[in-house]
């Protein structure tokens, strides 16, 4: 397809390995044994597209996301951003990149400061990066996520789950990033707010030319939102490709199991069998 020729990868990941110490098996003296969470991943995240990262709990999908935005440092391997390896850059060298790599979190209540109003939540990072940060900037960002000016003065506890998640999106896009990591951003929402937040994210990504990595365990959501999908299991990539390829012709048992586990809104007396 012509799309493949035009899109180049924003991220190229090669041989990515990461492990955590397992404190529950730590001997009295000496180091704790390590659990390998990511076992040598090779993948590309194409620029300007939405890539779904899917897998069961413990598959390493969130860990992979956090390595991409360099909240975690891998043990080995390369994370090429525009061809430049950012896998082991120190905090000083990362700072100019932070603005480009934004994140939207699963739980908006714990990722928005409860003592700050919405305007301040949105403008604080803007000021940090010298991108303005006036009240008008906050209103503009709110408007992009479909929230009126009245929301600027509100505090997170005064908002519904869907509205909070919109504020999280507004904070991320106000920095005009190149990449957004969205980690299970709709799993806490009811279906109607979920549909709203997803269509908002899709529109924004298209309008702003954003590259998005969307982590989810819900393949129905991935199918509707994403262009490409990566299926992870126990720290390894089982399959990847365009959503059409993976959904119409799933290669691995895990993908099939994940598809079967989704309760579709239709009658199916044999679903449990």
């Amino acid at each position: 397809m012509s799309v493949d020729v035009l899109t180049r990868p924003l991220f190229s990941v090669r041989g990515l390995c990461l492990s955590f110490p397992d404190q529950s098996r730590k001997p009295l003296f000496g180091a704790a044994p390590r659990i390998e969470v990511l076992k040598g991943l090779d993948l590309d995240i194409p620029e300007g597209r939405i890539t779904g990262i899917v897998g069961e709990s413990g598959s390493g999908k969130s860990t992979l996301g956090r390595v991409l935005v360099r909240l975690l440092t891998p043990d080995a391997g390369q994370v090429l951003l525009d061809g430049k390896d950012i896998a082991h850059l120190d905090e000083d060298a990362l700072r100019p990149l932070r603005r480009d790599l934004q994140m939207i979190f699963q739980d908006p209540m714990s990722s928005l400061n409860p003592r700050h109003n919405v305007a301040r939540i949105i403008t604080t990072p803007m000021k940090r990066y010298g991108l303005g940060g006036s009240h008008a900037d906050a209103l503009a960002a709110l408007e992009r996520v479909g929230l009126g000016a009245a929301f600027a003065e509100r505090y997170p506890h005064e908002l519904s789950g869907g509205q909070r998640q919109r504020v999280g999106i507004a904070r991320a896009i106000a920095l005009k990033p190149r990449f957004i990591l969205a980690d299970e951003i709709v799993s806490g929402l009811d279906v109607s707010s979920q549909a709203q937040v997803l269509s908002l994210l899709k529109d924004l990504a298209r309008d702003m030319g954003l590259t998005v990595a969307f982590i989810s365990h819900d393949l129905s959501v991935i199918r509707h939102l994403c262009d490409d999908v990566i299926v992870l299991n126990l720290g390894e990539i089982l399959e990847s490709g365009s959503v059409e390829q993976v959904f119409d012709n799933p290669q691995s048992e895990v993908t099939k199991t994940l598809l079967d586990a989704i309760p579709l809104p239709e009658l199916d007396p044999d679903w449990f069998d």
């Binding site: 109607s192 979920q194 819900d218 509707h224 598809l259 809104p265």
Partner: peptide
Amino acid sequence: ALIAATPSYS
């Protein structure tokens, strides 16, 4: 409307 709001991959 609630049924229509529920995502379905199929």
